[in-house]
Amino acid sequence: MDLAVPDWIFHNDVLVLAATADSTGALEITRSIGARRTGADRIRIYLPVPESLHFLNLAADLGRVSIVCGRPRDYRSIQLKAEGARPVATTAEDAAAVARYRAELGPALEGAGIPSEIWDQLISREVVTVEARLSSSWEQTPGANAGTRLDGGAG
């Protein structure tokens, strides 16, 4: 399945957060240090540890995650739903993507009026790479199209 996912959400001026829930309904949100598409229906997110450990525990139950990608400078945002989320080994490519994201997000935030100096203090240096299979994508930018499914599936 090749989802209609715009490229901009993988740029380094985009905030990425993920949420998961287990079978009891327990919820957890965590920040991701960027995101990378690794196949037609594959996405990798980079979760800081230790602050994402509970997230990883909950995700291990059902493997479902929801990922929001938002660009602060113009409020564009997309929500991705994914399944089969599981930790995978961090490759050199992943590490490079995380390093670029760390370096470039702060200035991008400043341009959008968000204090960049706090960015480094928000995230731990260590990350766990999680890969998941994309199942749907949704427009979230405020406006008439908010909530519209982008990949043509049933909403």
Binding site: A19, T20, R64, K81, I114, P115
Partner: peptide
């Protein structure tokens, strides 16, 4: 609201929904 906030909920089928909130 200086830094964007997010809100997560779950549906009847357990699907998680995550949104930015103004």
């Amino acid at each position: 609201g200086v830094f964007p906030s997010t809100l997560a909920t779950t549906g009847r089928d357990g699907t998680v929904n995550l949104v930015f909130v103004s």
